[in-house]
Design a protein around this nucleic acid. Structure first.
Lengths: 346, 346
DNA sequence: TAAATTTATGCAATCGATGCCGGGATTCCG
DNA sequence: CGGAATCCCGGCATCGATTGCATAAATTTA
């Protein structure tokens, strides 16, 4: 079987001790230049690579970070993972991915599995189902660096990376209002997610500003984030079948936006009849047929920043007590191209 | 800092030796039931978990598999990764993702990094740029289990998972022919990729069958797989500006299909004027405006199968010498919904 | 009762790399 | 020329868990 070269092989071949070889390779000051040269040349010749597992055991560091997202096959998260990977790669960390599928149990198992000393830190976006955070608090209290992104929680004090959910939702809703709609429905994800409440607040604030009464019947939650068959379609159907049917829809998540369009297409509704504004990071939004005005999150950037913060925590010499919540700006695109932007970055 | 419980802690607390604790936990036959009970109860109480890194060092197994794809943020690959993760999770393996961005150098570095004893096996879909396979052959010869999927190579004998590229391309092309087109262009990815040549063969075979002369001018390659700005648009422009302009396009990759539609939209061409059939795993194809007839690959299934094969290799008691190439079926969807299917699965 | 056997546990080596300590050899200085 | 400083390098322990072998205690057998 595969038997990699070890430091002992080099030592034996060169008639040195393992410790000498080790120090020579890491440029220890106590090794003569001549010996260093010999060792390095030989190591190079036989393509020696240090065993990261042995290093991890010794140094209590694995140079890997764990990522927990609800699913990889979602534009927002795959873009975020792209950003995560780009930073991790540059800093010499491996990225270990796991999916919660928005299930509490899976999230718990995955985080435990990752944390169990095999990962130096954790990047996580909460599952829709999760309402108990003890699996994360205990890890965090034990000193495992954690950074949240997108779906964050208040209960744990650490770095977080999000977008200006409130104002993004506000602007998307206001856009519909300015286009003459007043019976604006809101299709939202699981009620207790940070992104749901913040975006909901933006939605109601926009209604308020324009003196439109908030109608609870116009709000439909999808507790499973659209992950259950028919969930979105049923929600849309309800909105359409109200006595005083909605005349526009604001959707507060990527997956739901697409589901909403699909439902509308099924019901043969044109964008003129039922305009939709929603969050989406799909890379083909501008080619969609029931058109969509959409809020696009800087997913890649969010992944990058979250990873930088995490590695900062991991490599911090002293315990970090000052945490920051990075709030990035989104972009609002209208049916036919960019038109307005979210509160611009400074 | 975070100091996990070790087997020694248990030993000390219980007045036993580490070896006894170890054997008790793994149900060694030589330990009395009473001792086992005590040890297990205590381990459970203090939430002991074995250190996977120590296990890896001892057992030369890391229970992790490396994945190299060109990019995560691509429907096909993110769906495949979803499949990979689902199997790996069930069998207790971690998944370590890395992206080549279709760059040869990145692929080499990533594979070396992964293989360097930290991974039990490798799942890889080749980068567009790669033409030299020595980085993989050497690993393979050293006994590292490797399974290829989607973009495979002939030079290494191991399990492979692909789709029936030839017949999928054949049927997609024939669809355009049956709809009355004869000047069918072909937009393809990097020329040396397995998927490119196989799909190209299907394309020409369809032309042959219907006695349509093959016109090399109708073939445009995108050596960077559409990863370079303007690459796809320029290719489409060329096809349109031929003296005898093409009247339909067959596109042989996911990314290019979307790029092609985008270019057509930019040039204000309707699907009636320039129908497109192409490979795509986007989850919103049926909502696209310049419509697309598309070949959909069972990406999730491919990931699943590739992972099962890989774990089979990893856990094989004896060296495996019989390799198989799994060929899965695709589905062909017409502009407005499913209509014909690829050679059906049995 | 002594010997053989079983049972239950501990010791020590191992995996690969590194850090600490100590020691031999050379060089330096008085 | 002798003692000290310096320079290089080897030995041993360590990280956490496993495992072959040794061994003490308990039990059975002769």
């Amino acid at each position: 079987m595969f038997k990699p070269v070890t430091i002992k092989d080099i030592a034996k071949a060169l008639g040195l001790s393992p410790s000498t070889v080790s120090r020579a390779l890491r440029d220890g000051y106590e090794i003569s230049p001549e010996t260093k040269r010999i060792v390095k040349e030989y190591a190079d010749k036989i393509d020696y690579r240090s065993n990261p597992i042995a290093l991890s055991l010794k140094g209590r560091r694995s140079y890997s970070i764990g990522v927990v997202v609800c699913e990889v096959a979602n534009s927002f998260f795959s873009q975020a993972i792209n950003g995560i990977e780009s930073i991790a790669y540059n800093k010499g960390y491996r990225v270990i991915i796991s999916q919660s599928h928005d299930l509490y149990e899976r999230e718990v198992i995955n985080t435990k599995h990752l944390a169990n000393s095999s990962v130096d830190g954790l990047l996580i976006s909460m599952a829709a189902e999760t309402t108990d955070f003890s699996h994360l608090s205990s890890l965090h209290e034990n000193g495992l660096p954690i950074v949240f992104f997108d779906r964050v929680i208040d209960q744990i004090q650490t770095h977080k990376v999000i977008v200006n959910n409130f104002s993004s939702a506000f602007e998307a809703t206001e856009l519909l209002i300015k286009r003459g709609h007043s019976r604006i429905a809101h299709l939202a994800s699981a009620p207790h997610l940070s992104i749901t409440t913040e975006r909901m607040d933006g939605y109601t604030a926009a209604l308020n500003k324009h003196s439109i009464a908030f109608n609870p019947e116009y709000v439909q939650y999808c507790p499973h984030g659209g992950r259950i068959y028919g969930e979105v379609e049923d929600a849309v159907k309800k909105l359409l079948s109200l006595p005083d049917s909605a005349d526009a829809i604001f959707v507060s998540s990527d997956r739901l936006s697409i589901g909403c369009l699909r439902a509308l297409k099924k019901f043969h509704l044109n964008p003129e009849d039922m305009p939709v504004a929603g969050f989406s990071n799909s890379d083909v939004v501008e080619l969609l047929k029931p058109t969509l005005s959409y809020v696009r999150q800087p997913a890649f950037e969010m992944g990058r920043i979250a990873t930088e913060l995490l590695i900062g925590l991991i490599e911090a010499k002293y315990p970090v007590t000052e945490f920051e919540t990075k709030v990035l700006d989104t972009e609002l695109f209208l049916n036919d191209g960019p038109l307005a932007t979210g509160s611009k970055s400074v």
